[in-house]
Nucleic acid binder design. Structure first.
Lengths: 305, 305
DNA sequence: AGTTTAATGAAACATTTGTTGTGAAAATAG
DNA sequence: CTATTTTCACAACAAATGTTTCATTAAACT
């Protein structure tokens, strides 16, 4: 049991240690195997290659370069790991509250409880009512002249995430940032055809509340992403998406909010069809121009020893 | 995941239920499979037959007598039990349960698929390896002189969320914002006793990669929150927390990253004990001074439309 | 530049895989 | 006992598997 874990860890270690010296294709292979250990154990070499988008031969070559006789040996290590795993992980998450073995119990229990709560939040937040609200929100967003997104403090990540993703395929989305005390300035000209998407959870920041009040006064449609149908930012909203934010710690969880807003973007893109996809493609090109992303100059391939 | 366990349990149930009426050879087969579920998942049919000392054909016949099309279906159920990844079965079933009757089906299917993927990502990202990494990361964070948090573009929300929560109970956490092109300036004076927490997923922003390279050169400990053990920002890291970011749309999902970083904060607070709680309490008081939060002056009771 | 070296994709290889037939053996019934 | 059905081992099959080979491409070196 311990021994098997050791074999697996050793194999993994070999992949990581040698990674830098591998050829691009072999890196791709190694990387997929590191990221999907279960696939190694359960799939065949060929279907693994298919999943990793490489040639079967690349796997064999990888095995030899990290000093193994055959792929089968390698897979055996991964299979044994799976055998010794406490149980299915899914099952484990469920029963984690009751069972425990070895190591520090209290911390692992806390993490288990968090994981449980988070999945719970997710499932709740993707319930039928929320879905209906999301679809409704989509329609407002599509027909909006401009979209303003607001979220302060804890809700900021979710708001940012939404605006960031949206701007990849439409240019009429504004995130209220409020740098240097300019908050609210971006709202100038807000009108009847505009949409304000407000994200906020208790305790609600006064800024966000004010924005919704202002938006309502201007006749703009409000989409509220919040924790209650009667949240102050929801009372005047056209659409309210209620998110579960339960957490074992005293800090509320914004995970589900991020997830739902991501999903909202996905919905918008799906509806946008071909046009949206092209926009995204050109956005990517533009980013390449700015040299935004790191080019794999081959994770420094050390001079061969 | 619930459903997934259900598939396995169902198959097992079929074997047991039909057991009495089976022919001796088929009983032998069924018995072996009941006693060695792992073998079913990992071995081939032929080697399973060899291990059980029966003919391969007996297995096929057993499948048909318990009402299955093929052995491969059967094995799939067993494999999914072992897998971290709750399989397509689970997803389908979950969708069936939660579908809102009628309405547009394709959009609902998309949302269902997203929800499934997200919970999946969460469970993976709270797996045993990740938990170990999180605990290890905690120790580095606790002993750090200063903590620098970096995350650009898509990873920004997660980085922000972490830094924001941390600042509620410690004042030595700096988020690299890089307003007005000042990115990197905040790192001045980075040294051996400091910790850099870098969040980033493929495609990795060059800024984040550069920060980790700089940090490594300065001898600071790096905590990488990323999608692979061999991500460019992970290669020099002291701790790597691997997050699942699978998504049905082509945007990767940052949900799990946000969640894990939230959990990391919870862990830190749990370890910090009473002291941390007091810090938080005083932070809240301070916020009240600035009138940050909306005071419930009696939810304006509009005539509900 | 040209030459050597390494890396890659695709085809070919011998096994092994899951599955289906067939006829001998065993069990059951008349 | 024979007749009939069920059970089973074994051979046969196409499809898929793990591995090797080889020509072609890309990189490194002089």
């Amino acid at each position: 049991m311990r021994r098997n874990m050791g074999v697996y860890a050793d194999l993994r270690e070999r992949l990581i240690a040698g990674y830098g010296d591998l050829s691009p294709q072999l890196q791709k292979a190694a990387r997929y195997m590191l990221d999907h250990p279960d696939d190694v154990a359960l799939k065949s070499m060929r279907s693994l290659a298919r999943a990793a988008d490489i040639q079967p031969s690349a796997i064999v070559r990888l095995m030899k370069t990290i000093g193994l006789e055959s792929y089968q040996d390698f897979r055996l290590g991964y299979q044994n790991r799976l055998r010794d795993l406490p149980a299915s992980y899914a099952g484990r998450a469920w029963q984690l509250q009751h069972r425990s073995a070895g190591e520090d119990h209290s911390e692992d229990a806390l993490l288990g409880e968090i994981a449980r709560q988070e999945t719970d939040n997710l499932l709740r937040s993707f319930g039928p009512e929320a879905r209906r609200a999301m679809r409704s929100a989509c329609e407002y967003l599509e027909q909006a002249r401009r979209v303003f997104v607001v979220g302060r403090r804890g809700a900021w990540p979710a708001a940012f995430q939404f605006a960031y993703a949206c701007r990849l395929f439409r240019d009429d989305v504004t995130l209220l940032e409020g740098v240097a005390g300019t908050f609210g300035d971006e709202l100038r000209g807000l009108g009847r055809k505009d949409v304000v998407l407000a994200v906020g959870f208790a305790p609600y920041t006064s800024e966000t509340v004010k924005v919704t009040e202002f938006a309502a006064a201007q006749g703009a449609a409000i989409i509220a992403v919040t924790d209650s149908d009667v949240a102050p930012i929801a009372v005047q909203a056209a659409v309210t998406i209620v998110i579960a934010d339960g957490s074992p710690s005293f800090f509320q969880s914004f995970t589900a909010a991020v997830s739902v807003l991501q999903a909202l973007v996905a919905l918008l893109v799906a509806r946008g069809g071909e046009g949206a996809l092209q926009q995204i493609a050109s956005a990517e090109e533009q980013l390449a121009v700015f040299d935004t992303y790191w080019q794999d100059a081959g994770i420094k391939r050390n001079s061969r020893s």
